[in-house]
Simulated scan of single mutants.
Amino acid sequence: MIAAAAMAALAAGITVLGIIPANAIANGEPVKDGEYRFSTKLTMTGIPVLGGGTRNSACSGALIARQWVITAGHCFRDENGIRVERPVAASTVATIGRTDLITGTGGHDLEIIAVRQSANADVALAKLAEPIDDVDPLKVSDQAPEVGDVLRLTGYGSLTSTNAKPATHLNTGQLEVASLSAANLGVRGLAPHPDTTPCPFDSGGPFFREPRWQEPELVAVVSNGPSCPHTAIESPARTDNIADWIRDTIGLR
């Protein structure tokens, strides 16, 4: 997620075209072990820095096919701030199917080996080194959400924009759709608090519907918004209107 007032987190986050990525979910709640196992943490180690040297960072995302994770496009940017179709760090590892990164067991830690960038949204697809067979991918919806719809968000981001650092436990919260534009949604915090919002390192985290008696459906990913926590509008990148590109890229058509 990108927040103008989160400059202090710049060294720890990924700089995105003058915007700063989000962290873990502020004023959300811990996810119970085993829930939302498609949720993904991307750990980047050794990202080149303009002028020399490296830094580390992280993003969130979701498994949407056996060998593909969706996340924010700005999570893969070179030292000049340009979105690229390759892992930019010396190592980018996707952790999938593990709720607690300290005490949890099971799940997968897999290297990202390829990246594809959407031409129309702040969305990227990251290919895993090998397929995963024991985690159900998150379904990609091609139906736009409506104003008033309630969406759930999961992420491993920071809990605040102040001294931001990635969380070690998956968090979640609900936000309400306030508006739609061609490339983004406008959403505001709803539950468990009105200021439940993405933070740094939540960039790429999935926003999804939870239809009654049906599997969850992805409609957007964390892209940018104010410093967290806040009660203003977040602007996640829509995925429903690029669903055909997503399916073509990951071979589901």
Rank of each mutant, 00 (worst) to 15 (best):
S57M: 07
L252D: 13
R98S: 05
G157H: 01
W213H: 15
I25R: 07
E130D: 09
E210M: 12
N163R: 11
H169Q: 12
T249H: 06
A5V: 10
I112V: 14
E29K: 13
K32Q: 15
Q214Y: 11
H230N: 15
T40A: 05
E146S: 09
G251C: 03
P166G: 10
N80E: 07
T54Y: 08
A167Y: 02
S91E: 07
S39Q: 09
G173N: 07
L153V: 11
T197L: 09
L63M: 10
P87W: 00
Q174S: 13
F201H: 11
F201C: 02
S161A: 14
R98K: 13
L175W: 09
W245I: 05
R209Y: 04
R55V: 04
P194L: 11
V49K: 08
F207D: 01
G18A: 06
V135L: 05
T172M: 15
G251F: 05
V219F: 04
L151M: 07
D78F: 03
V150G: 00
T40G: 04
A144K: 05
N23W: 12
A220G: 02
D109R: 13
H169L: 13
R188K: 15
D195E: 13
N120A: 15
E111V: 10
K41L: 12
P211C: 06
I20G: 07
R86H: 03
Y36R: 12
N241H: 10
L159V: 13
T172L: 12
A24H: 05
R238W: 03
A4Y: 15
T154A: 06
G204D: 01
T45D: 04
R66A: 13
S57A: 15
A72Y: 00
Q174P: 07
A191L: 14
K127F: 00
P236R: 08
R116V: 13
P145V: 07
P236S: 04
G73W: 05
S223C: 06
A178W: 06
P48G: 04
S158R: 01
R77V: 12
I132D: 05
D78C: 00
I20C: 11
G205L: 00
P206V: 02
A182I: 12
I20S: 10
P229G: 04
T168W: 06
A58E: 04
R253V: 15
G28Y: 07
R116P: 00
I246R: 01
R37C: 12
S203N: 05
I96Y: 09
N171M: 14
C199R: 00
C59M: 06
R66C: 03
A126P: 08
T15N: 14
P236K: 02
